[in-house]
Design a protein around this nucleic acid. Structure first.
Length: 301
RNA sequence: GGUGCCAUAGCUCAGUAGGUAGAGCAACGGACUGAAAAUCCGUGUGUCCUUGGUUCGAUUCCGAGUGGCACCA
């Protein structure tokens, strides 16, 4: 097998976009984004999608293909990327995938279990129950319908409980019995390149990037999207803080400070996720040549 | 130059009637299979400015030094 998916990953703000472009140009190939928010067409400033200019340099996939109003999830991402790669591998031996959404990356690399897409009405009902009767109520339901999962789930995390309940109710079978931890065979090899740097430097880059987003018009972008604020896709750093400002919950300055803080925390969570993946080969974001050499040594053309 | 006040966590500050210290924010660690930039769990990280003295024992009391602030010259 001589097809390679090269995944460039790392925390937000580290410089993945420009690295991916350099690597893609070197190998004369295309880029797939593995970013759960850049996939939405309305959120370009706040999610730091590549610039017009960058998009011209290399063909990008999975950017601005959906509306924030569309329901989307990691499984759909997996399916779409597999189709895209199948197509691209006809012309290329290596494809670059770049992005920081750990779950999406894992879905492409390892696959996830076949489960039905969520029934929005059911989700709304359960969410309403959670809101009105509290977490105890949905916990009790889960204990009855899937006692196995009840024992292992984080009982303080409503989303986990809701997910298991939704699937169990929809399929009539306990959620836990449908989790088989698949290790899907892929018709290509995977190479993971991680970018990381000194934490303080990363944070100052993040802070600066937020200021740049604001100067590029993030406030207006958020204002335009305010009517859609209840869509999950807008439960996103950079937007929710502005929405609170629009509702006079805090000042604009506070909103900007919170965006910086929440972006920093997001970067930290990304690093926690990636740290346990021992397949990742780590580099500093300025080690372009070392990365290209690493890939040339690994990829058999 | 004189007088007064202050010096404790990364920041703002509390506190210990002498028994090595805590809040908020920030930060750090972790979990995570279809909402994942989401959601959830956990953690004080400290020469209490330095140095003499008193004391069984000083971050705390006293002296000196250093730095900062205010006022007076």
């Amino acid at each position: 097998m001589n097809k390679y998916l090269v995944i460039i990953l790392g925390p937000t703000g580290i410089g993945k976009t420009s690295m991916a472009i350099k690597v893609a140009q070197h190998f004369k190939t295309e880029i797939i984004s593995s970013d759960s928010r850049q996939i939405y067409k309305e959120t370009s400033i706040g999610t730091a999608v590549p610039s017009e200019d960058e998009l011209k340099q290399v063909v990008h996939h999975q950017i601005a293909t959906r509306s924030v109003k569309d329901y989307y999830n990691a499984s759909m991402f997996e399916q779409e990327v597999l189709l895209i790669t199948a197509d691209l591998f006809k012309k290329h031996n290596a494809i670059i995938m770049v992005g920081g959404s750990g779950l999406y990356i894992d879905a492409v690399c390892k696959g996830i279990d076949e489960l039905p897409d969520v029934d929005i009405e059911l989700r709304n009902d359960l969410t309403k129950e959670l809101k009105e009767k509290g977490i105890e109520s949905i916990r009790a339901k889960l204990k009855k319908i899937d006692p196995v999962y009840y024992e292992q789930v984080d009982l303080k995390n409503p989303k986990r409980i809701l997910k298991a309940l939704e699937i169990s109710i929809m399929t009539g079978k306990p959620y836990s019995s449908q989790l088989t931890s698949p290790k899907r065979e892929r018709p290509f090899m995977i190479l993971k390149i991680g970018l990381n740097m000194d934490r303080e430097l990363l944070y100052s880059r993040i802070n600066k990037r937020v200021d740049i987003m604001v100067s590029e018009g993030l406030e207006q972008e958020a204002r335009d999207l305010y009517p859609l604020k209840d869509y999950n896709a807008l439960n996103t750093v950079g937007y929710k803080e502005f929405f609170d400002y629009f509702e006079n919950k805090h000042s604009k300055e506070t909103a900007i400070e919170l965006i910086k803080r929440n972006t920093r925390r997001y970067a930290r969570r990304q690093l926690t996720w990636f740290r346990r993946d021992k397949e990742i080969i780590w580099f500093e974001p300025d080690e372009t040549q070392a990365i290209i050499s690493q890939l040339e040594n690994n990829i058999l053309f």
